[in-house]
Design a protein around this nucleic acid. Structure first.
Lengths: 393, 393
DNA sequence: TGACTTCGTATGTATGTTAAACTAACTAAG
DNA sequence: CTTAGTTAGTTTAACATACATACGAAGTCA
């Protein structure tokens, strides 16, 4: 932790601050930048000149005068380069092509049914490589080109080595994703946990400094942003919220614990409720399971309504725990269960309002977009590719 | 978040890095500093000169030669100034006088029995002021003198305004500690949650970058260090681990939640166990309660042994949740229940080893010193007083 | 004794930010 | 339509700081 600063780092930091501001605001002048950063106008001019030379920034005409010379409007050059993001879930893979401004240029979803027909590592590698190839074909030319690929995976990930340590619901252990993909793809590959990707995506969109992103589908995981940085923990494996126990008497979990949140707040819990009510749906593809259940509940089927009610209660209990522990600014709900948000929202809200500590009772729990994990994976790749953009950590 | 750097900040950061290194190492030369920080020898010399002029650093003779001129050994001047730390618990108040090197020069403990004879805010203010006055009298003269007072409180604290928002077990709401004490004491007053103080203390001692400090007594709270910084959450009220639920069927808690960890992992839980076994101890001072229980258990009394066993199990379940959520490097156990550490250790260890996720199974759970909260409070005051020392956030 | 090593300092240079002067371009009052 | 005032952006000089280099001091070792 011995941070030292010299002139070049000083300039780098200031340059990053300027580009960061340009990245947030859609139209801003040199003068505006000087005012909001506190940097001298001359310094800003010099930094902007370099950013323009690097094609990260473009001048786009002049703005309105406020009593003097009209300002030159600057913008982050969203088309300076592109990244690919891949969200690997148990039931489907979502791939996006995003420009440097995190605008989605192309997206593709492919259902898989890993639970019915398990995919081994090499099959999954090929599948991801195929998806990348598909997206790659539609990537427009740009100054920095296609800069990298981010992959979000549902389980324990060693993001530094680019390895999946344990993906319980895919039945995969110790899979070196980066090296495997390198056989098909020469682009830089970045790998991370899916909830981490989602959290990063929501942070970049909202700039909320402390947030929790809960990905609830077949498993449950959380991504945690603290002070604008992704919190990874000492071993890089924080946020296993799905394996915090909410009951001392629950079922044994594969993780070794008893009564894990994941047992009560995942698709499994719905199946459990349905089975208990004698209403199993055996001939449905896993990738359509939640969809079908939501449809039944929306149609008024009381068994399904009750199942979602129970689910919402358990989801709420765990959420309250996270609120009291982390005291965040916002919570985002993602994964297949987010499709049932409208069914669970009233119960969820009422549990948070009654059971969280008073300062946490009005923290909003909102659904995330279905592509936020893929977009976040792309965003992580972007952050690694352009050193001047906001750092992950 | 628009960080800008200029020459003076650059120098400040480098100076802090140098002083930080001197603060950690007990004997180090300019040359050593240059090597470990990467700063140029000339730069180090210049920075050290200023630090010596400020009396933060002293030259203490020469070291052994390694084939050339002998180095001049530098040391952080632990006697450059002093701070006071106060740990306010329900049953006692601990006050320490520490020098700038966090060495305890004097300490004093005073039992109170706030539960039996409740103290109101003004009585508590006077009590703290008295304790400060006692300690102040033994403070030796020094270049920077007595720099400030840190106060750790068991409950929700607004550290920025120096206010206690809610201290449930003391029955106090909205108490402006800083202003109240200002009537008695002109020193700068810094207020924080007790577990935050403890966590900061353990961080400064161990330099473990990710750690959790659990303060378990009549209440339960956690202080969280993330990446060498105290994590306070969005509203400054994170770490309310005592109010994360570990059972859906437990008692109602004053916080609004059901089945809070605090119901199962505090002194209350022992009383509950004893009552259930028909072995209440009504005529004991609250400040001696745990002491007495430990003595009974150590003497082999099966009712007390069973009570601690149950307590350890519940403590363990909550700890596992924290491990899986935060993936820390170490956990420190403090508060009155830490006195029963030897009784609970085997159960605690076995629960962590079996129920935590595999990467968290060998995270050490060790007892903290009984003065770590007071020392941490002093440390927070120190960090605020000397801007060149490690920052809290 | 003499060559070599290491520590710490002195001096000049490179890099960067800032302050101030300056030009460009606009608004608004008379 | 002129003129004063304002705002945006650039140029120039001054200043702060870290670094490279050279050097003296003080040791080691053959």
């Amino acid at each position: 932790m011995s941070t030292t600063v010299d002139a070049s780092l000083m300039r780098h930091v200031n340059k990053r601050t300027v580009l960061g501001l340009l990245y947030q605001e859609k139209a801003i002048s040199r003068s505006d930048i000087s005012r909001t950063t506190g940097l001298n106008r001359a310094t800003v001019s010099s930094l902007v000149d370099e950013l323009i030379a690097d094609q990260f920034v473009v001048e786009v005409g002049t703005g309105r005068s406020s009593g003097g010379r009209r300002p030159i409007i600057l913008q982050f050059n969203t088309e300076t380069g592109y990244v690919i993001g891949v969200d690997v879930q148990i039931t489907h893979v979502t791939t996006v092509l995003a420009n440097a401004g995190r605008e989605v240029v192309f997206q593709h979803r492919r259902n898989i049914d890993a639970m019915a027909a398990p995919l081994d590592e090499s099959a999954l590698t090929r599948l991801i490589a195929e998806e990348i190839a598909v997206v790659k074909r539609v990537c427009p030319p740009s100054p920095h080109g296609l800069m990298g690929v981010g992959v979000g995976l549902p389980g324990l990930v060693d993001h530094q080595r680019g390895k999946a340590i344990y993906l319980p619901n895919l039945g995969i252990t110790d899979w070196n994703v980066r090296d495997s993909l390198a056989a098909f793809e020469s682009l830089p590959i970045f790998v991370d946990n899916d909830a981490n990707c989602g959290a990063w995506s929501e942070y970049l969109s909202t700039r909320v400094p402390h947030l929790i992103f809960v990905n609830a589908g077949i498993g449950v995981g959380a991504g945690i942003i603290i002070n604008g940085h992704l919190y990874r923990g000492a071993g890089g494996l924080a946020g296993e919220a799905g394996h915090h126990a909410i009951s001392p008497t629950g079922d044994d979990c594969h993780c070794g614990n008893i009564g894990c949140w994941e047992q009560y707040a995942s698709e499994r819990a719905i199946q459990h409720s349905l089975a208990a009510a004698g209403a199993l749906m055996p001939d449905i593809l896993p990738s359509d399971f939640v969809d079908q259940c939501v449809r039944e509940a929306d149609a008024g089927n009381p068994i399904y309504l009750a199942a979602f009610e129970t689910l919402a209660q358990h989801l709420g209990v765990g959420l309250v725990n996270l609120l009291n522990l982390f005291n965040p600014t916002a919570v985002f709900l993602s994964g297949t269960l987010a499709e049932a948000y409208h069914l669970m929202q009233p119960t969820l809200a009422s549990i948070v309002e009654t059971r969280a500590m008073f300062m946490n009772r009005h923290i909003p729990v909102t659904p995330a977009s279905s592509i936020s994990v893929a977009l976040g994976a792309a965003g992580l790749a972007l952050a690694q590719s352009i050193a001047l953009l906001p750092t992950v950590l």
